[in-house]
Each structure stands twice: as structure tokens, then as C-alpha cells.
Amino acid sequence: MSSPSKNVKSEKSDARRFFVDLSRAFGGAILFSFPLLMTMEMWRLAFYMDGLRLALFTLLTIPLLIGLSYYDGFEQTNTVKDDVRGAFIAYAVGFAASTLVLILFGVITPGMSANEIIGKISIQAVAAGLGAMLTQSLLVIDDETEKNAEKRKRSASYGGQLFLMVVGAMFLSLSVAPTEEMVLISYQMTYWHTAALAGVTLLMKYGFVYAAKFQGHHKVHSPDESFLSLFLRFTVVGYAIVLLISFYILWTFGSIDGLSFAEKLKATIVLGFPAAIGAAASRLIL
């Protein structure tokens, strides 16, 4: 900082570091979103999905990315401003990555209306933006960033842990949510199946929390916290979050439109299965 030449040098290395970060984020965007980029329901959603729902989906991505940047972004952040900037960078990278891949796949061609093209890209950009932001944990990088994020993750408050559950639930459920199988599976299931699936999901979720307790991952609960407290505070609340996220995603994609309430609930519990795994494992995968 004291000598001008040093300053120039550090600026140059900062710019190079940003370029490296950007390339890595690009890779992460594709790594996370390729299942969706290769799902035909996602291409088609763009022209039958409700515009308001798509706008809301994009809008909600931003606070999600900001929060994720705070806990686990692709670069070190110290201020809210850094996190906000990081969120928009991740979205831009996700948008660019989706555009490139969709053009390469011939999904976007001339003759399509601007609305269709923007719709096709922006629905993918959500997942790709998440991927760009998650890069730092997906592709392990320098120890410093890793330690920094790890520290934040560990010191995450109860609210912070719930937030990571939301991201984990979205992370795993997004890649299967748009497929027809979600609703098809729920058609195949009786209400007994559904109840059993919900039970198994809860049990599995508790298993993850229990295992994490012994590994000392959570600082929020003390080692001698009772079964009931642990179960209520993490497993039950976590599952409620998971079901809300599943329902929101199914509603966004219009998969459960026109179904009766009971059928909607069944599909939500089906999608809740991968979502719960994502939420429970959020400390492992994020």
C-alpha cells in the first residue's frame, strides 16, 4: 500500500484473482445446473409458466444468493455490500452459463420470441446462479477462503442453520422438481405410502442431525441437549421448511395446478424426500 508499484501489482493480482473466481463460478454454475439444462420440462416451462411466478422466482433468488454469499460465497466477503455485489455477480455468471449451454444444445434458436428466450434462460439462471455461488464448496479452493466460510458456517446462528437448510433443500429438489415424475410418483402412491414416506423422511432427517451432533458440527446445541429438543428444533422445524420449499417449487413450475389439496400435499411430500436430504446434508454439501 505504501509504494505505488506495490499498489499497482496488488491491483493486477486482484483483477487476476477475480478472473479466476469468475471462471470457477462459471464452472460451478454448469456443474450444478446441467441436469436442469438437459431437462426438456425446463425448456418448455418458459412458454407455459405463469409470468408472475417466474418473476417472483427470480426476485426471491437474490436474497437467497445474498444470504448464501454471507455464509458460503465464492469469494471472501466482509460487508453486506460485498455480499450484494457477489449475489449479482453469481446471477450474471449463471445467466451467461445458461445462455451459452442452451445455445449449444440448440434449445434457443432464431424464430423464438424474446419472451420465450428470456424465459428459458432466466428460469435456468436461478439454479445456475446458485451453482455459481456454491462453487467455493463444490470445487475446493485455497485454505483461507475455506477456513473463513467454515468458521462462519460453524458460528451460524439457529436462523443461519435454518437458512442453510432452505438452500440445501432447494439444491437437491430443484433438479428433479420440474420433471413429470414428481406428480406421477404421487399418483402411484396411496395415502399409506405417503404417510410412510413422510415418516421415513423425518427419521432420515433426524439421523443426519444426530450424526452431526456427535461430530460436533453444531455449536448451537450443547452435547447434552435432549432428544426431544433436538428433534423439535431441527428435525420438525426443518421438515416444515422442506415442505414449504417443495410446495413453493411445485407451485412455481405449475406442476400441481388443478390438483385437489390432498393430491397437492402428496406431491409435496414426494418432492420433500430429496429436499429433506438436501436440507439435512446442507452442512455437508454446502
Binding site: 417466474l54 427470480t58 457477489g86 449479482f88 446471477y91 450474471a92 419472451n115 434462460i121 439462471a125
Partner: peptide, 18 residues
Amino acid sequence: IVAVVGLILVIGSISLTL
């Protein structure tokens, strides 16, 4: 610059769909 591009993309795609 990239962050501003992201901001424009978010606002642009939301306002177009809306």
C-alpha cells in the same frame, strides 16, 4: 461491471415477464 450486468439482467428479466 459484472455485478451491474447481473443487476440489469435481474431487473430486465423480472420486468419483461411482469
